[in-house]
Design a protein around this nucleic acid. Structure first.
Length: 139
RNA sequence: GAAUUUUAAUUUUAAUUCUUCAAUCAAUUGGGGAGGAAAGUCCGAACUCCGUAGAGCAGAAUACCAGGUAAUGCCUGGGGGUUGACAAUGCAAAUUGUCAAUUACGGAAAGUGCAACAGAAAACAUACCGUUCCGAUUCACUUCGGAAUAAGGGUGAAAUGGCGGGGUAAGAGCCCACCAGCUCGGUAGUAAUACCGAGGCUUGGCAAACCCUAUUCGGAGCAAGGUCAAGUAAAGGAGAAAAUAAGUUCCGGUUCUUUACAGUAAACUUAUUACGAGGCUGCUCGUCUCGUCAUUACUCCAGGGUAGACCGCUCGAUUCCGAUGGUAACAUCGGAACUAGACAGAUGACUACCAUCUCAACAGGGAUACAGAAUUCGGCUUACUUAUUUCCCAU
RNA sequence: CGGAACGUGGCGCAGCCCGGUUAGCGCACCACUUUGGGGUAGUGGGGGUCGCGGGUUCAAAUCCCGCCGUUCCGA
């Protein structure tokens, strides 16, 4: 069960790191253009037991909806990440790399997606993860 | 955040064990964890800093009366107005009463201004059609001139109180009754106001037009403000204005020397006035600070760095219950409770069960509001679910 | 947290201060004329909840209040 946790060390906490991954990192978008992803792969030297080799953040545009709705989107994204992160982590340990990435909304709106659930977004995000995984494997 | 356990490292100790303090990684346990509007940011405060807040003008806000409150532009009660319903009176118009809703409700007899079109005239009134009298003219109808007249006509949102009677050449508050309005007096009420009486006989509307009157208002806001750590730059541009008096130091001159005298290249102190810059909201006064010839300092412009941690930060005009006072808002007293404090910013996934509605014989499926604290309170406004109450409309 | 501006035919703007007679202008659109045809030019025409809801007034795009949306500025 420990493997599915989502501790604080796996989140991007500082402003500098966030801006670095957002501006320098490569960009991917899902098939239906709802989400985009910005990610950055670096060499990892520390011990994976004490230091996390993966860092995540989720960002939703302020103009796309109201606060309650935005919070719910973020919760669902976190849940999807928590359930699907394992293959990514294994690859990273094998290749001795670290990954930091941000998932942000692109063409997602409260008016078009008023009622949202986990199943709506799971395919898009998992597809993004697989694309990143392929990129790491090719290195 | 708490407790327990584990790991690594440090300090104390001769060493081990034990104990203590601080920090980090991980695990386990059982707790706490968004709202009535957390929203909009429209008012009012608390708190914090800047600072003295002095005067006048300007500006902004508020505006029937009384009470409540920390305070308010909020709330409660009362009064007046408006609207609706019902009842009574009445031929009707309407009036009165009850109930409900609503109300930015000071001043139009301080001044200025505005009112399209229509109309004679839109405010010191005025004579278009009319009405009456007098004079002239004509055979007569008529026409012309002068005077009086707002009762009638038409226009308009609005026409100088309404309506009836008397009166008159025709008319007119010219006179009278009733109604409306104004002023004065009395009665009731804390007051707004209501009722009664008298007077004179009128004063149109718009201040959410300018304005006048009264009252209130120092500014900025938790990115307030404070502590610690880390770290960069001190570099660029622009700017204004001086004299006088006294004293001290130093330098030079005259003199044998001291004293004294004169001079001013330099530095400083004090005083006076002047000027400049800045602060005190915008302006004026007033006042305070600094400066007055300088690769200094000051002011302004432009620019650079940091944005990590902690405090502020949640016990408060707090919440709940009860009693007493008050028509009520609310107040006082007693008891009990502690109820988010984040910083990329908090509740998710799956399963089971319950309620309501719905598709539906059952089973099964679907749906179940508005919406997320950011220093904290009191209101207001807006969004919306369910329940209850009142009023209106329909059957 | 504090402050400011804007919303008018499909598009870009006037009009609002100081309320009034039919809400104008340019581009675009439609029809007709000119041409062998098209363009150009000319003539005529259609198209407006004046962001929404109240209020003041005889009368509101205009004045006042409350919402909604957009944009900008400062800390």
């Amino acid at each position: 069960m420990q493997k599915f946790r989502f501790p604080k060390s796996e989140r991007i906490k500082s402003r500098k790191q966030f801006e670095k991954t957002f501006i320098i990192g490569k960009k991917l978008s899902s098939i239906n253009q709802l989400f985009r992803c910005s990610y950055l792969i670096e060499d990892f030297k520390g011990d994976p037991q004490f230091e996390s080799n993966i860092k995540v953040a989720f960002a939703i545009n302020r103009k796309s909806g109201k606060a309650v709705w935005r919070n719910r989107v973020k919760r669902i994204l976190r849940e999807i990440y928590r359930l699907n992160k394992l293959p990514l982590k294994e690859i990273l340990v094998q290749k001795k790399k670290s990954l930091s990435f941000i998932i942000f909304s692109y063409k997602l709106n409260e008016s078009t997606h008023k009622k949202i659930s986990l199943k709506n977004f799971e395919k898009d995000i998992v597809e993004l993860f697989e694309n990143i995984k392929k990129e790491i494997e090719s290195l």
